[in-house]
Design a binder for these strands. Structure first.
Lengths: 238, 238
DNA sequence: CGGGACTACTTGTCTATACAGGTCCAGGGT
DNA sequence: ACCCTGGACCTGTATAGACAAGTAGTCCCG
């Protein structure tokens, strides 16, 4: 272990653009520097600038038009898409009492696997929380969450008895996109005990990644008791 | 407007790999040709081969290990729950063989509970089917479906080895809306055996109702093995 | 027999250069 | 007034060459 390896240059170029978008000096629809301009101002080859812009375009952060230029994509920022809901609101909407128990709250160093999921470099600091959300007396969700402090700073300073992680995140990091993977499993013992499940009971795991400013703001594993929770979705074909 | 523009070479390389995966000559976990081998056999530059493999890795098709090689990723099954898709297409898109087994096909009289779910009067006739969909040799979905013949007539006359229920329904009853409820459970014995699950294994149940002409066309319970199936959803708020 | 150096091969990155094709605008000819 | 033609600039792709770093096997030396 020594000198922190300098990040790849194409990653530096991506960060250069992303920081300008996050900082507000590049707004949706505005033009970003062309490959040739980046070549000059950042002293990289055009191929390197090309790769940075191409990957950002593949991620939906930028839009490129041959012969014209590269522009910041219109990000539809929406406080509350149907699929990403606040569990406290859900519970209260059913007329029940919402309560949360904070089991862990910490800053951790990302393992390689975690770093990959969160889109950061291995070893980067991430805010970590482990909460159980209760509906009346029964646990309804175990939420294990990692937050990128670069994208959503101040996560650990929250009082989660008053603000849910979800509320904090939509305030600090406007939600651009969310990815979900849903899985059914019989959980390990730790989760089973937190959800107070019988041995052999199934649980529903929702793995969620939320994006803000083209970067991953937060990664969460949400465990629900299979017997008391279901996911509803309604869709209309376009 | 003719002369089919030759596809970009890096796309040709991607196709070369994808075809070999689809065709079965490259299986999960197996090694794919190195960049240098592709350079020789396909007469492209290493950068072009690199781009092809890198993009396939970004898509999750391949896994690359520096110093070792590039391998076909273990594909975890993915689907988009918010879209209603055809499971046969999904399986074939992964380059696997699709097969279906018809376990029951009948006309039944709706119980009170079923009638409520289907939006018909108790005692009304409903078409019923029970199918198992296979990916190669492994069952991927048990589909238990009730169809309202008033909305989608002729369901029972289908040859389901050639037309999936989904294909029939979208042809006969234009899809207007779909409702999904997703649940995790350890299934009853009947489902467990059809999915060839171990005792105590979890499965993912998707209960789907599709609407056509403002009426419920079909109600389906779709059971998937929890160990081999997951739902993926990406949502962009609009 | 064990360990370390060496080697061959891999991915990962970076650069300079090249050409093709799209877009836009200005300027000149009709 | 209209067209259309060049040039400037953009993205998109392709190549050859280079160096770094990771991995695994071999082979030699102690």
């Amino acid at each position: 272990m020594s000198l922190p390896q300098a990040a790849a240059r194409y990653l530096q170029v991506k960060d250069f653009i992303l920081e300008r978008i996050a900082g507000g000096s590049l707004r949706a629809g505005e033009r970003v520097p062309s490959e040739n301009e980046l070549t000059r101002t950042l002293t990289v080859s055009r191929m390197t600038a090309n790769r940075a812009l191409r990957e950002l375009a593949a991620d939906g952060v930028l839009v490129r038009v041959a012969g014209v230029g590269t522009f910041v994509a219109e990000q539809r920022v929406h406080a509350h898409p149907l699929e990403v809901r606040n569990i406290a609101d859900e519970i209260r909407a059913r007329g029940h009492e919402y309560r949360v128990k904070v089991l862990a709250l910490d800053s951790v160093s990302a393992s390689r696997e975690l770093a990959e999921r969160c889109g950061v470099k291995p070893g980067a600091q991430l805010d970590y929380s482990l909460l159980t959300h209760f509906e009346d007396a029964a646990p309804l969700q175990v939420e294990e969450r990692y937050v990128n402090p670069q994208v959503a700073p101040g996560y650990l300073r929250n009082d989660f008895s008053r603000t849910t992680p979800h509320e904090f995140l939509i305030r600090v990091a406007p939600l651009q996109r969310a990815e979900h993977i849903v899985r059914a499993l019989v959980p390990e013992r730790r989760i089973r005990r937190l959800l107070r499940l019988e041995a052999g009971e199934a649980c529903l795991l929702i793995m969620r990644r939320t994006f803000s400013h083209g970067r991953i703001a937060s990664v969460a594993d949400l465990y629900h008791p299979g017997s008391r929770y279901e996911l509803a979705a309604s869709c209309q074909p376009r």
